[in-house]
């Protein structure tokens, strides 16, 4: 198995690097305005919206509730560490409650 591990990690490392470089090279050849540029500008937001949707699918009511709390705290404070701590406290508290019942 140890050879298989080395092959996997070296190849996946190479492919990941090609993906990273490919994104920049691809973007360089796209027009700077018009629909393409509008799409590229919207991309980070759409990617994070997709990531959050995926994370919420994998979670349950505890994660959904804590997600709403994090969102509201972030909206109010615009502070990343504070929002993260609020979310973690919320999850730890809710999980504690679930365990008690």
């Amino acid at each position: 198995m140890t050879n298989e591990i080395w092959i996997t990690l070296l190849a996946l490392g190479g492919v990941s690097f090609a993906i990273r470089l490919g994104g920049f090279l691809l973007a360089q050849h796209l027009p700077q305005d018009g629909p393409w540029a509008r799409g590229m500008e919207a991309l980070p937001g759409c990617l994070v919206a997709s990531l959050v949707a995926m994370m919420m699918i994998k979670g349950g009511p505890v994660e959904w509730g804590a997600g709403v709390v994090v969102f509201l705290v972030a909206l109010k404070t615009r502070n990343l560490p504070v929002s993260m701590i609020a979310g973690m406290l919320c999850v730890a508290g809710l999980r504690g409650l679930v365990m008690l019942n």
Partner: peptide
């Protein structure tokens, strides 16, 4: 949950 929270907290900024 820390990583989930980090991305949720990004939403209002994005």
């Amino acid at each position: 949950f820390a990583i989930v929270a980090a991305f949720v907290a990004l939403l209002p900024n994005l």
